[in-house]
Structures are given as C-alpha cells and as structure tokens.
Design a protein around this nucleic acid. Structure first.
Length: 431
DNA sequence: TCTGGGGTCCTAGGACCC
DNA sequence: TCTGGGGTCCTAGGACCC
C-alpha cells in the first residue's frame, strides 16, 4: 500500500501558523504580481471564492467579508515544506517528495489493519511538529491513494482526514464518488473527451479497456491510468531528488515594459536567478531561451508573443556568460512599439558541472575566473542576504518589478523576521 | 489598473545510419 | 514491369501535474 500525504490549503495554512489569531477567519493567498487567488482556507472556500480567480474580481467580496489577504511568500512556504517533509521522513524514510505540499510514502511493511492508525499518527505528528494540517489517502496505487486523499478532505469530519481503501469494494465506492475531472492524470482535455463518451466517474473509467485508453488517452499513459485505477500499481515511488532538466525564471511585470533597456534589465535579472538555481544543483546549461509577451487579457492590443534561443558551444553556469547570451537573444526578440506584460528565461540542455564537454573552438570556456567569481557571489549572497552582490545589468530601480503588496515576513528564514514571543505569568483565577 | 510560475513525460515525425 | 528493411536520435508540441 501507498500513502499520499497532502497539506490542507498549504499556503494559507503556512500563513496561519504565524498568525494564530486568524483561526476561524477566511484567508486567501495571491499568486505573483498579486494576480490570482491560488490558495484559500476552508472558510474562504465556503464564501465561494474560486481557485484561480483574478484578485480584482474577488476584491469586493474579500473586503466585505474581511478576508485576510497575503501576497505569496515562497521563502516561507519553502521552509515550511522542508519541515513537513523532514517530519514525514522521520516517520517513514521510504518517501517521495512529490511537490511543495505532497509526499508519497511506501507502506508495504505496515499491516493492512494498522493503516488507519498509521495515517492518524502521521497527521498528529505533522500537526504537532509544524502546525500544518494534512490529509492522508492510502490505497494500492498512487492514483487510488490520490482518490482516497481527496475524499478524506471532502468528508473531513467523517474521516478525520485519513482514508484507507482497504479492499476492492472500498476502491469501487470511492471511484464512484469521484468524477473523472478529479482523477489524477485526467486534465481538462481528457475530462471533456471522457464526458462526451458518457464516462462520468472514476469507476466507469476503470472499466474501460487498456487498448481503448491507449488509443484515446495519450498512449502508454492512458494504459497505466486504467491499471492504476484497478489497483495494479504502475507508477512507482521515486527516491532521491533528480536534478532539474530545465530551469526557468519568468515573471509578469508590475507595469508594462516598453523599452529595450527595461526589458534587458528584467531578462538579466531572471537570467541571474536561473543561473543561481543552476549552480545550486551543480549543473551547467547549453541552451538559453528568452520569451516575452503582451497581456493576454488586454483588449487594447493584439496578443503578441515571441521567443528565441541560442545554443552555447560550451555549457556554463556562469551568470556573466549566460547574461551575455540572453542579452543578444533579447535584442533580437524585442519589438519596438510593443507593450510587454510578461517575460522569462529558460535554461535547458542541462548537464552535470563535472561533465562539461569543452569545445574545440572555445578552449578557455567556461572561464575559470568567472566560475570562481560566481561561487564567491553565491557565498556572499547566502551569508549576507539575497542580492547583496549582483550584476549591474540587472538594474537598480527595477521599475517593472512584480507587485507584492501584502507579503508576510519571512518568519522562519530571516533573522530580523523571527517572531518575538512575550511570555508572562498570569495568576490563575479560581471561580 | 487589474488574470501565476515552474515543471515532467510521451508521441509523432523527420533526419539520419547501415 | 520493377527500387528494402531495420534501426536510432532528436525536437516540437501536446498532455498532464502542483
């Protein structure tokens, strides 16, 4: 059996840990640029605020209902995620960290009869050690565990946040209660297709033939999905963390960018962020892509997007070299007269830093001096705070910077943001 | 005024090899 | 009249995930 442990309303829960007075109050967390609502606690969901709703559309309701609003604070969520995952790994080292707020656990060694208690133990331990509420779904395959997890959340009171699909009957009931859109691996496209073919819930989907799924649901992926729904695991737990094959840094602008110099500043900033991530995982990249686009929802101008890339002869993780390439690509891609809303950099063709194949025609690349410089900059920024030292190309004013107007402090990762707790003794009053 | 960001896996089809 | 067979590698694009 496998478990999926999923943090409830993760970002909203992280904010609440440090603001206990918000207990019982609705909370939402916004995407970058304070654009969309990407997390809501139960109280906010009950007010009918949909996931992914643009903030400005929900603003009236939010103000009227006195919903607490937070800009996203990824430093905080990343650190809380790390604490949750460490807690889970402490309980069960056979763990796959699947996303910032989810992990799969291998429960092959736990007797079926003990699984419910085991799930409850996980919930309690994580709650006590981190303050984050989680839900636990347990079943024979990852896909079925996901189904169980979702139902445990939906019927939180009845299931107390843990659901085990202990036999085929339980699997069948759970699948009947789950519409196809809510099955892991069925996205918008397939859901529409399935509904058109009269397949509404997970149980109906599980009855389809593998050949049919192969033909209609993305080949081998569809075939696996059918097996997983029938309790035959096809997606095994992955242990250890893989290096990323692609590293991106992309942002919407706080206000439109119309000049090449602003665009270059933004792209240089994103490039240096992506290069940091690249060095953090001890890799180098061969391909630098740059894209930029106008506002998708802007009716005053036609939507416009363009991207270009350049291949480096020698892979590198040096910010200065990557910026130089990115600037060239930016100049070719930028169109004078366009009003850009969003841009980004993607580094790909990633190799291990120990496996850099040097090029016959570039014997001195990557430049050893730049490599040493990069390491020194990373160390300074780690010790003294992000952006203590940066490349001039990334600009100073950053007029285009992403909006983030209601960001909470970095309670757990910044010395000056650590909460101060005042404790005092209050004599007990006996009635 | 105003709508996020960062990933993975798979397949089809083209280019190429012997 | 008539022109083989069996492969690999790479990329773009589509689907999905959180």
């Amino acid at each position: 059996m496998k478990a999926i442990v999923d943090c409830n309303s993760f970002y909203a829960s992280c904010e609440k840990v440090f603001r206990p007075e918000l207990e019982g109050r609705p909370i939402v967390v916004l995407s970058n640029n304070d654009g969309c609502i990407i997390a809501r606690n139960d109280e906010a969901k009950r007010l009918g605020i949909p996931m992914g709703e643009p903030y400005f559309k929900a603003k009236a309701l939010i103000e009227q209902q006195k919903v607490s609003v937070f800009s996203s604070n990824y430093a905080l969520y990343g650190d809380m995620s790390r604490r949750v995952m460490l807690t889970l790994a402490d309980i069960n080292p056979k763990i796959e960290v699947y996303s910032v707020d989810e992990a799969f656990l291998d429960l092959a060694d736990i007797p079926i009869a003990d699984l419910l208690d085991y799930g409850r133990l996980i919930r309690e331990q994580v709650a006590v050690w981190t303050g984050i509420p989680v839900s636990v779904g347990i079943a024979r395959s990852k896909t079925l565990a996901k189904v169980a997890n979702r139902l445990s959340k939906k019927e939180k009171v009845k299931t107390s946040g843990v659901m085990v699909l202990e036999d085929e009957l339980a699997e069948k009931e759970a699948l009947k209660a789950t519409s196809v859109d809510d099955i892991w691996g069925v996205g918008r496209r397939y859901a529409r297709f399935l509904r058109l073919n009269g397949i509404e819930n997970g149980h109906q989907l599980s009855l389809q033939s593998e050949a049919w799924a192969y033909k209609n649901l993305g080949g081998i992926v569809g075939k696996r999905l059918i097996k997983e729904l029938n309790g035959i695991p096809c997606i095994e737990l992955k242990h250890g963390i893989d290096k990323k094959q692609m590293i991106a840094s992309t942002r919407s602008f706080g206000k439109p960018v119309n000049t090449l110099s602003d665009m270059k500043e933004a792209i240089a900033t994103y490039t240096s962020r992506a290069a940091e991530k690249l060095r953090l995982q001890k890799s180098a990249a061969c391909c630098v892509s740059v894209f930029m686009s106008t506002g998708y929802f802007d009716l005053r101008q036609a939507y416009e997007k363009d991207s270009r890339f350049e291949i480096l002869l020698t892979p590198t993780a040096n910010t200065n070299e990557l910026i130089a390439y990115a600037m060239r690509v930016t100049e070719k891609t930028f169109r004078q007269g366009a009003s850009y809303k969003k841009a980004g950099v993607i580094l790909s063709s990633i190799v291990d830093e120990n496996a850099i194949q040097s090029c016959l025609f570039e014997p001195d690349k990557p430049s050893p001096k730049s490599t040493i410089l990069g390491k020194a900059i990373d160390q300074l920024n780690k010790k003294l705070g992000n952006d203590t030292v940066h490349f001039a190309a990334t600009g100073l004013e950053k007029d285009w910077k992403t909006r983030s107007e209601v960001r909470s402090p970095e309670y757990s990762t910044k010395w000056k943001d650590i909460p101060v707790v005042s404790a005092f003794h209050q004599p007990k009053v006996t009635p």
